[in-house]
Design a protein around this nucleic acid. Structure first.
Lengths: 148, 148
DNA sequence: GTCGCTGCAAAGTATTTGCATAGCC
DNA sequence: GGCTATGCAAATACTTTGCAGCGAC
């Protein structure tokens, strides 16, 4: 559960991160950040617009996209692309991976850590500067595999 | 290098897979399969259309999409989604992972195996029927990290 | 001959861009 | 006050759908 105290503490956190980047602290950004934290699950840009619009009615989709990209850079959200349907934005801070159902398209969390060290090391050895990794497991979900 | 003999052998392979699925063996499918194998790297649907069109001028984009999806089901290609830009289709049969540059958007191969067993096991434990997994490492590529 | 596959055109969805204004620092 | 961020509208990029005709089996 997210309390008002938590919100304020997290506001301060993002604000600091934004300023450190030379960015500005706007109500759009703070409200999107809260919406993301309170949802606590991957959401599309449209979903976030809907939720955040309740608090800031004129919020626009381009702003949502721009803000999400900024947050990604700040490490506040992770972009999760599946290949069918829109990109998802995941605010969960704990390391976890995703499962994508090939039939119904649902994306589900897998609460498991994966040793991606070898892959990150390989990237570094190839001269790149990796800053994150994510695993996507695919197949049929619980429900879809039952009514094949 | 791909010889004419290889092509014929691989044609037979896909043909068998297609028939086993109850699908038909069409020139579009065979030519797309060859184009994929000969490229031997991830390509977009448009790129494949361009390459394959040289041999089959009336080939259409909807057919390319449909065929790639079919091939994915047959295990001939892997869908690689990055979240910016179009989906890539990867024909490389050897297990490998990908690196995506956040700045220039390039997707590069990492020739490394990852132990995804734990994640696949977690998916199965949650009741799903996983059939594959892929790791995406992100960051700045070789070139982009140099001219920051 | 049947039924799945294809091509064409069109629609649909997701995301980005251009530009004038608002508002943080 | 300067310069970034926003909102609006429009454009673009990618992918899917509908349907009539062709061709594999």
């Amino acid at each position: 559960m997210t309390s008002a105290t938590d919100s304020r503490a997290h506001d301060a956190e993002v604000s600091a991160a934004l300023r450190a980047r030379g960015g500005r602290v706007t109500s759009q950004r703070l409200i999107l950040h809260r919406a993301l934290r309170e949802l606590d699950r991957h959401a599309t840009a449209e979903e976030l617009l809907r939720v955040a619009s309740e608090r800031l009615p004129n919020l626009s989709l381009p702003t949502v996209y721009a803000t999400l990209e900024l947050f990604e850079e700040l490490g506040v959200v992770r972009r999760v692309a599946v290949g069918s349907g829109p990109v998802l934005w995941d605010p969960r801070p704990e390391p976890h991976q995703h499962f994508a159902c090939r039939r119904c398209g649902r994306i589900l969390d897998l609460d498991v850590r994966v040793r991606a060290g070898a892959a990150i090391e390989a990237a570094r050895a190839a001269g790149h500067a990796p800053d994150g990794a994510q695993l996507l497991v695919m197949g049929l979900c619980d429900a879809c595999s039952r009514d094949t």
